[in-house]
Design a protein around this nucleic acid. Structure first.
Lengths: 195, 195
DNA sequence: ATAAATACATACGCGTCGTATGTAAATAAG
DNA sequence: CTTATTTACATACGACGCGTATGTATTTAT
């Protein structure tokens, strides 16, 4: 194994271990000693690769965010129209946010520890995707000429909160339908009136 | 000063001190020794009154949430119609969430440390108010017959995210207008079509 | 072949939290 | 009125977790 490969391997192992620990115990309660020891390393490796504990969280968040955007994009391109793609994206975010790992790391600890998602180095791939989709829809006249970033932030926020609600609910399967229905009505408010 | 008065005084002082510290440094970085010392007490008093650090945060969050609901309600009752009241509420939440104290404590650390807001003992007064308003609007036929809690959660989530975005922005004054405009369009999607 | 940089491990000090214990004042019991 | 008991804190203790400083072996550059 080459040197460059080995260091990449170390990074991958630490990110994976951090991802597991942060998801299970939350950022604050996750011990760096435990994380590193679980993959046969010490904190020395972690500090060398990521600077500090927040650096590891940043890397984990970045990885998950990228995965989410990828999945949402795959669903969006399958849609018949761009508008359907936007709707599918929103619904996909609601469903992905039901994943405890996503909730704990990206939606709860992420903003609390790293600050506003729009300022993350990962640049929040999910949000950027929604913005581009909205720009397309505005250009083709399907969506009212609102500020695309504003609309994207609100939609993502709505989806996020819906997900947190669903997850905390006693009967998630039942509640998810109500959430998606309400979401669809809200999105429809952005559509231009059909003459 | 009677005994019951004195203990209430202690609670008030601790909540006030915690509120300041949590707002300035964030929950994790706020030291219980510093908080208690700033009002001439020790951690003994804090553990006696609130059980643990989370207990103090809970009390602080509860206080702020109550204040927010009160202010939003005052604005809502001033409105001409119930619908205008709902809109005013949403805009009020966006603007209140611009307050750094609200952001840090209620929107960031609160959910991360205490879990989903709908499960807080304070029962999230803000959310309950929006739900009741929506129920009224649905009953009078102004709003489509959606699940009121679902719609309320999405609207609050949208407002919340808008606020976080605005606050992190370089030119908040400019951005707030875009956010409110997008919010208004989203809410309009809940309205029944006027025949 | 030697120098320098890399990729970690090890060792240390400090702050913070929770708990266990101590104590003075207020209330309740006899 | 005296004695228990509970309340409302303060103090003392132990343990953990983070960051940093330092050590060290292995590559890479010269």
């Amino acid at each position: 194994m080459k040197r460059a490969e080995k260091v990449e391997d170390t990074r991958r192992k630490l990110i994976q271990a951090g991802r597991l620990a942060f998801a299970e115990k939350g950022y604050a309660a996750a011990s760096m000693d435990d994380i590193t020891a679980s993959v046969g390393l010490t904190r020395g490796a972690l500090y060398h690769c990521f600077g500090d504990k927040k650096g590891l969280l940043q890397a984990v968040v970045d990885q998950i965010d990228t995965e989410m955007a990828s999945r949402a994009h795959a669903l969006a391109v399958e849609s018949e129209t761009v508008w359907d793609g936007l709707v599918a994206e929103g619904v996909a975010y609601i469903k992905m946010a039901l994943n405890p790992e996503v909730q704990r790391i990206v939606l709860l600890d992420g903003p609390a520890v790293l600050g506003d998602p729009s300022r993350w180095p990962s640049q929040n791939n999910c949000l950027q995707m929604t913005i581009r989709t909205l720009d397309t829809l505005i250009a083709e006249g399907t969506v009212k000429p609102v500020n695309a970033e504003a609309a994207a932030r609100l939609l993502n926020g709505a989806a996020l909160n819906a997900a947190l609600w669903i997850a905390a609910s006693d009967m998630p399967e039942h509640v998810v339908d109500n959430a998606i229905e309400a979401f669809l009505w809200l999105v429809s408010g952005l559509k231009t009136a059909k003459p």
